[in-house]
Simulated scan of single mutants.
Amino acid sequence: MSTSSIQATELPPAGNNDTTPDVVDGLAFAKLYGEPLFKLPNDLYIPPDALEIFLEAFEGPLDLLLYLIRKQNFNILDIPMAQVTQQYLQYVDQIRKHNLELAAEYLLMAAMLIEIKSRMLVPSNKTQEGEEADDPRAALVRRLLEYEQMKLAAYELNAMPQLGRDFLHAQVFIEQNTVLHWPQVDLNDLKQAWADVLKRAKLVAHHKISREELSVREHMSSILRRLQDHKFVEFSELFDPSRGAPVVVVNFVALLELAKETLIEITQAESFAPIYVRLAYAPV
């Protein structure tokens, strides 16, 4: 990124020997403080501090350091600290001449680079377990990788379309008519509405539960009377599903009570064969 700024001072009137035309093809040469300049000045003076050129603009020390590494295709996991530190200090010397406050942040990173470089020159001592000591560059490499990931993510977010920058909401003026137009109701629509009302009415129907007294003893007596007339009765024939689930349940409980009191026998000829019920034989 290159930026430049030029400041010019106000000049005295040119001499009588100036042969520069006042106007060239009807256009002015330049503008000075907003006024058109139709004559070239005899002496153009530019102060030394008026022209400033920044070859690269960085967002911080990590950005500069990452730029130096990527520009020269260095392995970020094996940074040559001597070369990178030297190049970094050269850039810091340049910005210190123009902006001391900006250079303070970069000087802190420069001190860290010098410290890492000096630690690498000292022979590394092994730990008590016999392992190699940690690389002094490990913390710096981790910070650089994290910064690079965040920077790439920021570029991807910036590339996404943004409201107000890349596109605008479409606005269309629609004239509204104040006259109301009621829709036409068809006969089929009326029938469908009535069917929906009936459907909702069925959903709120009440269910009444009545109490019915059922006696287990009565069902036990009924089963014994039925077995007296038959030698064997199939298990399913002792139940009448048409009388409802409560009666069937009580009848089954009565059957279990009879078997418990050994008044009946429940037999089966083989596996998966029909189950039969008969009266138990009384001992002689």
Rank of each mutant, 00 (worst) to 15 (best):
Ile116His: 05
Asp229Met: 09
Gln192Ala: 10
Lys208Ser: 09
Ala104Glu: 15
Val247Arg: 04
Val250Gln: 04
Glu237Trp: 01
Ala103Glu: 12
Pro136Arg: 00
Leu187Thr: 03
Ala259Gly: 07
Ala153Leu: 12
Met112Trp: 02
Ile209Met: 13
Asp93Ala: 09
Pro136Trp: 00
Ala139Glu: 15
Met1Ala: 10
Met220Glu: 14
Asp93Asn: 12
Leu68Val: 01
Met81Ile: 14
Ser124Asn: 00
Ala111Lys: 14
Ala170Asn: 10
Met160Pro: 00
His230Asn: 13
Thr127Cys: 04
Leu238Cys: 07
Pro241Met: 04
Pro36Gln: 11
Asn16Ala: 11
Lys39Gly: 07
Glu237His: 09
Pro274Gly: 04
Ser118Glu: 15
Arg200Cys: 02
Asp186Cys: 03
Val250Lys: 05
Lys202Pro: 01
Asn16Val: 06
Ala111Phe: 12
Ser215His: 13
Ala259Glu: 14
Val84Glu: 07
Thr262Ala: 15
Val197Pro: 02
Ala195Gly: 03
Arg96Trp: 12
Asp240Lys: 13
Phe235Met: 14
Ile264Leu: 15
Leu203Val: 05
Glu101Lys: 08
Phe173Glu: 14
His206Thr: 06
Ile266Trp: 12
Tyr67Asn: 02
Leu102Thr: 06
Gln87Ile: 01
Arg243Lys: 15
Met109Gln: 07
Glu56Gln: 08
Val122His: 06
Lys208Cys: 05
Ile266Thr: 09
Ser222Val: 07
Leu55Tyr: 05
Leu279Asp: 06
Glu234Gln: 11
Leu32His: 10
Pro47Trp: 15
Gly164Ser: 10
Ala205Gln: 10
Glu132Pro: 03
Ala50Trp: 08
